[in-house]
């Protein structure tokens, strides 16, 4: 009886510690992502991007609309999207990211401009908060996720935020001692 009691207490402790870990990291939940690939002109090119994306460890499935060169990515349960890995796979296939749209689960909180959200190993810097609480779709606005012209415009506009050019958290972002990669979102 005593042994059974100890086992039950131990299991309960593990459950509580797991729950705490989830609460600490799961600030944002993502349902899927849509990737627009630029430079594609043929089905063989589309296939090379499709095969390249299938190799990404955190992607569960890839669906593509060949006519529009849009790829819908669903994540494996418990995994976080890594935009840099997606960009690398697209570039290795010989093409470029046109846009990466992230579909988040809306939360019961209002996001503010320049708010920072922890997501996996990264931070998301909210450039433009969502206008509705029903749909939280955001585009990444960092270098190589937008056109060079758009990047140059944003770099001038966001000159108060050195994190935009460096891609790393800085004094403008957070009081955290640890510097982390930061992506800039526009909902």
């Amino acid at each position: 009886m005593k042994t059974l009691f100890i086992i039950l207490i131990t299991c309960l402790c593990f459950q509580i510690s797991d729950l705490k870990a989830q609460q600490n990291t799961s600030v944002l939940a993502m349902q899927k992502a849509e990737l627009q690939v630029n430079g594609l002109t043929c089905s063989m090119c589309n296939l090379s991007v499709y095969k390249s994306l299938q190799k990404v460890s955190f992607i569960d499935s890839v669906k593509t609309q060949l006519n529009s060169s849009v790829y819908t990515l669903t994540l494996k349960p418990g995994e976080y999207i890594d935009p840099s890995s997606i960009k690398k796979q697209v570039e290795d296939a010989g093409f470029s990211v046109g846009a990466l749209r992230l579909f988040f689960q809306p939360m019961d909180v209002a996001l503010a401009k320049d708010e920072h959200l922890a997501y996996g190993k990264f931070y998301f810097h909210v450039l433009n908060p969502p206008t509705s609480n029903e749909s939280w779709v955001a585009e990444i606005k960092d270098k190589k996720f937008v056109s060079q012209k758009e990047y140059n415009r944003l770099r001038k506009e966001l000159n108060q935020h050195p994190c935009y050019e460096s891609g790393m958290t800085s004094a403008c972002c957070t009081k955290d001692a640890e510097s982390r990669q930061v992506y800039h979102l526009s909902f």
Binding site: N38, G39, S69, G98
Partner: peptide, 9 residues
């Protein structure tokens, strides 16, 4: 040199 655009490069 690579300059990619939507359905063009």
């Amino acid at each position: 040199l690579t300059i990619d655009e939507h359905h063009a490069h």
